[in-house]
Structures are given as structure tokens and as C-alpha cells.
Design a protein around this nucleic acid. Structure first.
Length: 541
DNA sequence: CTTTAATCAC
């Protein structure tokens, strides 16, 4: 067992650069090896040599269609995958760019310089895709941006400048962010409300509330006006980033200068409700009426949210009565909030009563409403009903969203419906709905539990192809769940993989893995994992 | 592409 582990743990499944093309190509190559390799080879771990044809032999639950889907995907040509995200890029460009961008760089200038030495054709589409791909890595993204800017026959559009501003803001490179905004200002006509909204949002997210407010104060310098929407934008950003206090301050200061509207009041009501300061929210509601605006279903739903969160249905019903008395009709959002909360509180029938009520009042259900309905039916174990609602959506003129698929998948996983869960993922892909980490989490859990390694690797590939990062959280899940399933070798392999990508494992999966190795008396493997952990921690120190 | 609420995982 130890020998097996050692081949497994020393197999570099991923190259060090996590999100690069190289990694993607390499990973695809691994799957290719995995599904085609017949003879023994020292570099390939034993688990990777599963003969795909035999995997499903004793498992009737997986239909041939899903099986062939998985198999077909595993044999994907890695270059095709790379091309899918680089668009019309030629094959030689893919190889050239991947080689360049997957090295480690200390500055954007270095990246630009490296790109400069090559003969690569340029298009706005390609620059955008590359920036998107590297949007979490501002050094590379900014390098690509700087390189493209000086190419002949090429000028960045305002859209790409905005994107760059956002990437720099996300990376908290505010000095560079402002530099870009100044540059846009000099170009003339490049700055829009979108630019400033992004900048204010990123500043607020970094806790720089004062700077976000200053950006608003100086907005006229960029040819924009301090109108009510700009003010609302700022308040929205401050509230979303946890400072309703600053939002209220700025509102108080500017309400004399700017003609505020009902939306301004609602944003504040929502802000105070989110931090459970209901008295302050009520004060805003009174203030709203003094300014001649009647509270609407939006204003009330802020309070409903709080009561629903507390499962205080007495207050929910009282408020619904109050709304009725004041002639404020519930909307689909109102029904969704209440129905969802009742369903979560296991009051399924009461929740479904609201569905009836909504239909009676000729309110039209939308996707989020159906998602809630599917969710509560699933939680109540009514799989058949959930499925029926899901399949009835198109007939009702509502297109299932990514969340619809995620809800259905999560529900199928809860009841260990492996085949159904994979079929839904396939359907989701066909519908061009983008899966996110929430889509994959229940699937990863289920297939860890079922010890279906070949499906796990398929899913991890699927994530990479869909630009969903396999982050520390995902690795923790894999390691912990595989330990639970007594698949310690695979858990070790994932541990090594995450360390090789420069991540620092969380304590809890690490301890779990060590305990598991100790219990099995796998001394060497334990020492190896301990060494890896020390290395990983050393990198940040 | 000017602005506000609800739905999926831990």
C-alpha cells in the first residue's frame, strides 16, 4: 500500500502555475493518459489506470448516455480545449502564449516584455479573453494589457479599460487603478458611470470608504454629474461592502443638493435591515413618506427578509396584512421570500399555500421563484414533484437558470442519484448555463463518498474547462471526504497537488489526513505530508 | 450598461 502511495504522491498531476494554459493542457493530457494507457508505466499512479470501459460494468445506475459523455470528454484534445477559450487564435499562438504566461513574473512590465519578443497576432477579443482568464492575477492581466496597448493597429476600447480598472481594484492596486482612470480621462470620453461605479465599489470593498466617497465628490472632474443615480450607486456600494453608516452620512449630506428618489430611501431601508437595525430602517421609511414617497413592496420586503430569517412567521403574517391594508400588493419577490422561508422551516404545506395564493393573484412566477419551489420540494423529499416543476418551467415560458440546475443537481446528490446528477450537469452544459463552485460542490461530495475516482477527475477537469477554480476550499473538501471514504492515497495525492500549486492547506484537513495515516501506520507517507505542510507554510512566512 | 429586494454550497 505504501509503495502505491509513493508512486501516487510523487506524480505531478498539475504543473505549478495553477490557472495557466500550461496547466490546462497538461491536465487534459493527464486525462488522456488516464483513459488510453494500457501498459504499466512508472510515472502513472495506479488509480489513473482505470480502464474506463470496465468502470461502469457493475453499476446499472449510470446510463450509457452519461457514460459516453464522460468518456468523450476525457478524450478531448487539449488544444481544442485551449482554443475554446482563446477563440479564433491559431494553434501556434496558443502554444506560444501559454509558454509565456505560465512563468512567474514579478511585474507587468516583465510580462509585456516577454510577450514583446514573440510574433503574436492581436485582436480585442483575444486580449479580453486573456485578461478574463488571468483576472485573478493582476500582474499577468496588466502585463497583457500594457503589451497590447503599444501594438500597431490596436487601441483598447473603453470596455477593456473598465475591465482593467476593475481587475486592479480587485487586487487593491489602487494607485495603478487611478493611473488608468487618469489615462482614460486624458483619452477623452472613455470614462462612464460604469468606470466610477466599479472604482467606488472596489474602494469600498477594501474598506476604503472615505476614498470611495472622495471618488464621488470628485466625479465632475471626469465629466460626470452628481445626480441621484450616482449617489444611489455610491450608497449601494457602501452598503454592499458593510458600511450603511457611511451611506447614511453621505445621504444626509447630499439630500439637500441632489433630488433624491424612492430608490435612495429603499436602498437605505435595505441597508439598515441587513444589519438588523430595524428602528433606523423604520425612521427612513417615515422620512420617505415625509418626502412624498409611499413605501412600496420593495420597502416592505426588506423587513420581511429579517422576519423570515428569524423564522418569526407571526410578524411575517402581520406585515403582509399591513401591506394589504395599505394597498401594497405583494410581488413575485415577496412570495418567494415568504415561501422559501416557510419551506426551510419545514412548513412545506404552508409554503405551497403561498404558491397557490400567488397563482390566484395572477402574479407570474419567474426563475428565482421556481428555484425556491424546487429547493423546498427537494428538501421535503418530494423529488418527483421537484422534477416535475423543473420540466414544466419551459412550458411556463421560464428558462431554467444556472441556479435552477445547481438546485436540481444538489437535490439529486442529496439522494445519491448519481446518474441523474450527471445527466443534469450535461443538460446544463447543453443549455449553456455556466456552472460555478456551488454546482460542483455537491457532486464532488457525492463522488468522494461513492469512491468514484474516475468521475471525480472528470469533474475536476470539467471545472477547469469552465474556469471554476479548484481553490483551498475545494481541496479541503476532497481531502476530508476522501479520508472519510478511506481513500487515503488519493487524499494524499490531492494534498500534494495543492501544495505544489502554492496553496497552504487548512489545519482541519491536514490533521484529518495525519490521523488517518497514523491509524494505518503509514509512517513514511505521514512524514512526507508533514514535510509538505512545513514547506507550504514556509512559502508565506 | 446607469441605479434598489428574492433563489443554489458551507
Amino acid at each position: 500500500m505504501l509503495a502505491r502511495l509513493q508512486t501516487a504522491t510523487f506524480f505531478p498531476i498539475f504543473k505549478t502555475n495553477v490557472n495557466g494554459l500550461c496547466h490546462l493542457l497538461f491536465n487534459q493530457l493527464c486525462t488522456k493518459i488516464e483513459s488510453t494507457q494500457v501498459t504499466e508505466s512508472p510515472e502513472v499512479p495506479s488509480w489513473a489506470k482505470v480502464n474506463p470501459a470496465s468502470v461502469y460494468e457493475d453499476d446499472d445506475s449510470v446510463s450509457p448516455t452519461v457514460t459516453s459523455w464522460i468518456e468523450g470528454r476525457r478524450l478531448d484534445d487539449p488544444r481544442k480545449v485551449a482554443q475554446r477559450f482563446l477563440g479564433e487564435t491559431t494553434e501556434s499562438d496558443v502554444v506560444t502564449i501559454s509558454k509565456i504566461l505560465n512563468k512567474r513574473y514579478s511585474s507587468p512590465e516583465e510580462v509585456a516584455e516577454a510577450l514583446d519578443g514573440c510574433d503574436i497576432s492581436i485582436s480585442e477579443n483575444k486580449v479580453e479573453r486573456l485578461m478574463k482568464r488571468y483576472s485573478h492575477d493582476w500582474v499577468v492581466a496588466f502585463g497583457v494589457f500594457k503589451w497590447a496597448k503599444v501594438q500597431a493597429w490596436y487601441t483598447h476600447s473603453p470596455k477593456l479599460y473598465n475591465f482593467m480598472v476593475d481587475i486592479l481594484g480587485k487586487a487593491k492596486q489602487f494607485h495603478l487603478m487611478w493611473e488608468q482612470i487618469e489615462e482614460m480621462n486624458n483619452l477623452g470620453g472613455y470614462i462612464s458611470w460604469f468606470t466610477m461605479a466599479k472604482a467606488m465599489r472596489r474602494l469600498a470593498r477594501a474598506g476604503k470608504y472615505k476614498e470611495a466617497i472622495d471618488a464621488f465628490r470628485g466625479i465632475e472632474r471626469f465629466g460626470l454629474r452628481k445626480d441621484v443615480t450616482a449617489l444611489n450607486n455610491l450608497m449601494e456600494a457602501l452598503i454592499k461592502e458593510n458600511s450603511v453608516e457611511h451611506a447614511y452620512e453621505i445621504f444626509s449630506e447630499f439630500k439637500k443638493l441632489v433630488q433624491v428618489n424612492d430608490i435612495s430611501f429603499n436602498i437605505l431601508i435595505n441597508g439598515w435591515c441587513k444589519v438588523r437595525r430595524l428602528d433606523d430602517a423604520k425612521k427612513i421609511m417615515e422620512d420617505m413618506e415625509k418626502h412624498g414617497f409611499l413605501p412600496d413592496e420593495f420597502s416592505y420586503s426588506c423587513f420581511l427578509n429579517v422576519y423570515c430569517h428569524d423564522k418569526d412567521f407571526q410578524k411575517v403574517y402581520a406585515l403582509l396584512d399591513e401591506m394589504r391594508d395599505k394597498g401594497c400588493r405583494p410581488r413575485v419577490v415577496t412570495y418567494t421570500i415568504v415561501m422559501h422561508a416557510l419551506g426551510k422551516a419545514k412548513k412545506t404545506n404552508e409554503a405551497l399555500g403561498f404558491y397557490e395564493k400567488m397563482i390566484e393573484s395572477s402574479c407570474v412566477p419567474d426563475a428565482p421563484f421556481y428555484n425556491s419551489l424546487i429547493f423546498i420540494l427537494g428538501k421535503a423529499g418530494r423529488l418527483k414533484d421537484a422534477r416535475e416543476v423543473f420540466y414544466s418551467m419551459p412550458k411556463q415560458g421560464v428558462t431554467p437558470s444556472a441556479i435552477t440546475y445547481t438546485t436540481m443537481i444538489s437535490c439529486a446528490c442529496d439522494y445519491s442519484r448519481e446518474d441523474e446528477a450527471l445527466k443534469l450537469l450535461k443538460k446544463m452544459e447543453r443549455a449553456s448555463c455556466k456552472p460555478d463552485i456551488k454546482t460542483y460542490t455537491p457532486l464532488l461530495k457525492l463522488f468522494c463518498k461513492k469512491k468514484r475516482m474516475e468521475v471525480l477527475y472528470f469533474l475536476l477537469n470539467h471545472m477547469i474547462n469552465n474556469n471554476v477554480r479548484i481553490d483551498v476550499e475545494a481541496y479541503s473538501l476532497l481531502i476530508t471526504r476522501l479520508c472519510k471514504s478511506e481513500e487515503v492515497e488519493h487524499a494524499c495525492s490531492f494534498f500534494e497537488e495543492m501544495v505544489s500549486k502554492g496553496m497552504v492547506p487548512r489545519d482541519s484537513p491536514y490533521k484529518r489526513l495525519i490521523t488517518e495515516l497514523e491509524a494505518r501506520n503509514m509512517v513514511e507517507a505521514k512524514e512526507y505530508i508533514e514535510k509538505l505542510m512545513l514547506n507550504a507554510k514556509g512559502i508565506i512566512c
